[in-house]
């Protein structure tokens, strides 16, 4: 059951200042409305994982590890490999996160990233089948939030796609109906580079890459993912506010242009 959350409001003086700044097209940290924080992506940070990447977006820090195993494909897609995305809002990342089973926020985060990866067809799942109906590669994308300062959707998505591009696929030898790793590796077939762009609405202003303080003030957010060809492949509106049709059109244009910028920062993506 989903319940209206209790959120700690910003101090009056800070929220007033933020609104006044936004009216002038400025933000508390000095950015313009359509400016991202510094995006830093480091791939291959966990040697034991088949793929990994760490992303920092200002003070937001996310680590993604990719593990590849073999297992049965889903019965409704017997000719495809399996992609699984999971997210953990670690208690070490912020005082508001508590240990325990995934809550609606971490489930939403994982599903939004999953949608971006899946619907862009970034991972060529058809080539990840070993024995149709019996054995497939299972790709686990595990999102670890290390420090929360807003815009977890985008930071996680960049880390996930960077991790996939960095990942190696263990080659297996088929023996009967089992796969035995040969010890060799090949590249994971990644053929698109989906990039999500999150736009928050505070008052009447639309701004990209909200910090946690800005998210606290935002009535709603919209996350729009585009493929390398500029097609929209995933959208999620979240938060208890609304968007006008004009705002959605504006957000969609911003997402398209910012995605091209961020895409050039994804390590391993060669257009």
């Amino acid at each position: 059951m989903s319940i209206t959350p209790q959120t700690e409001p910003l101090t009056k003086i800070k929220s007033k200042q933020m609104i006044e700044f936004l009216k002038l097209g400025k933000r508390l940290d000095g950015r313009s409305l359509t400016e991202y924080r510094d995006v830093k992506i480091e791939a291959g940070v966990i040697g034991k994982a088949e793929g990994s990447a760490q992303v920092s977006l200002g003070n937001t820090r996310v680590l993604v590890g990719i593990k590849v195993e073999t297992g049965p494909p889903y019965s409704d897609t017997p000719n495809m490999g399996v992609l699984t995305v999971n997210a953990e809002l670690l208690p070490l990342a912020h005082e508001i996160f508590e240990p325990g089973p995934p809550d609606e926020n971490s489930i939403e985060l994982a599903r939004v990233v999953d949608r971006s990866l899946r619907e862009s067809k970034a991972l060529d799942l058809e080539s990840l089948i070993i024995i149709p109906g019996k054995l497939a590669y299972v790709v686990f994308v595990d999102i670890y939030i290390l420090n929360h300062d807003g815009n977890l959707f985008d930071a996680s998505e960049y880390a996930a796609i960077s991790g996939l591009m960095n990942a190696k696929l263990p080659v297996v030898e088929v023996e009967g109906e089992e796969g035995k790793p040969t010890g060799d590796f090949k590249e994971l077939p990644v053929r698109d580079c989906p990039v999500s762009i999150t736009i928050a609405k505070i008052d009447e202003a639309l701004l990209v890459d909200p910090t946690l303080e800005e998210e606290t003030m935002a009535t709603a957010k919209i996350t729009i993912t585009t493929t390398k060809d500029g097609k929209i492949c995933a959208i999620q509106k979240s938060g208890g506010g609304t968007f006008t049709f004009e705002e959605i059109m504006e957000a969609q244009k911003i997402a398209r242009s910012k995605a091209a910028e961020v895409r050039s920062l994804i390590p391993g993506w060669r257009g």
């Binding site: 949608r115 899946r118 619907e119 862009s120 919209i222 493929t227 097609k231 929209i232 492949c233 995933a234 959208i235 999620q236 509106k237 506010g241 609304t242 968007f243 006008t244 049709f245 959605i248």
Partner: peptide, 9 residues
């Protein structure tokens, strides 16, 4: 609009 989601292309 108070709900908007999309998947596909």
């Amino acid at each position: 609009v108070s709900l908007l989601q999309m998947d596909g292309q």
